[in-house]
Amino acid sequence: MATKEDDQVIKENNCETKMGLPCVLEAFSSIFKTGSISNKCCGELVVLGKFCHSALVKRTLENPLFKDLNPATIIAKSIQRWNNCLALIDPPSPSA
Score class of each variant (00 low, 15 high):
Lys4Ile: 06
Leu56Gln: 12
Gln8Arg: 15
Lys40Trp: 05
Ser36Cys: 09
Ile74Trp: 04
Thr3Phe: 04
Leu61Pro: 08
Leu48Tyr: 01
Pro22Asn: 06
Pro71Trp: 08
His53Pro: 09
Asn13Met: 10
Val57Ser: 12
Trp82Arg: 09
Met19Trp: 01
Ser29Asp: 15
Asn63Ala: 09
Ala87Asp: 14
Gln8Asp: 14
Ser93Trp: 00
Cys23Trp: 00
Arg81Val: 12
Asn13Leu: 10
Asp7Thr: 03
His53Cys: 03
Leu48Gly: 01
Leu21Arg: 13
Glu5Thr: 11
Gln8Cys: 10
Phe51Ala: 15
Pro92Tyr: 07
Ser95Asn: 09
Asp90Phe: 11
Pro64Thr: 06
Thr34Gln: 11
Lys11Ile: 07
Glu5Leu: 15
Ser93Ile: 08
Gly43Ala: 11
Ser54Tyr: 05
Leu61Asp: 11
Cys15Met: 07
Ala55Arg: 03
Pro91Glu: 05
Asn13Glu: 10
Phe28His: 15
Ser93Arg: 14
Ala2His: 06
Gly35Ala: 12
Glu62Asp: 15
Leu25Ile: 12
Asn14Ala: 09
Lys67Ala: 12
Pro71Met: 10
Val9Gln: 05
Leu61Gln: 06
Leu69Val: 00
Arg81Asn: 08
Ser38Asn: 09
Leu69Asp: 01
Ser78Tyr: 02
Ser36Asn: 11
Ala27Phe: 03
Glu62Ala: 13
Phe32Glu: 04
Asp90Lys: 14
Ala87Ser: 14
Ile89Ala: 03
Val47Glu: 14
Leu45Pro: 05
Lys11Val: 09
Asn13Gln: 14
Cys41Arg: 07
Leu25Trp: 03
Ala27Gln: 06
Phe66His: 13
Ala27Leu: 08
Thr73His: 07
Pro91His: 05
Asn63Val: 05
Val47Cys: 05
Pro22Trp: 03
Ser93Asn: 10
Lys77Phe: 09
Lys18Gly: 00
Ala87Glu: 09
Leu61Trp: 04
Gly35His: 06
Ile74Lys: 13
Gly49Tyr: 12
Met1Tyr: 11
Thr17Lys: 02
Leu56Phe: 00
Glu16Trp: 07
Leu21Thr: 09
Pro91Thr: 02
Leu86Gly: 04
Ala2Ser: 02
Leu56Met: 14
Asn14Leu: 10
Gly20Pro: 05
Gly49Ile: 01
Lys50Trp: 08
Pro71Cys: 04
Arg59Met: 05
Ser30Tyr: 10
Cys41Ser: 04
Asp68Arg: 13
Ser78Asn: 12
Asn70Ala: 07
Lys67Val: 03
Ile89Trp: 02
Cys85Ala: 13
Gln8Phe: 11
Ala27Ile: 07
Ala76Ile: 03
Glu12Lys: 12
Ala2Gln: 04
Lys40Pro: 00
Val24Ser: 12
Lys4Thr: 05
Leu45His: 01
Ile75Lys: 15
Arg81Trp: 01
Leu61Phe: 06
Asn39Cys: 12
Lys18Cys: 01
Val47Tyr: 06
Leu61Ile: 07
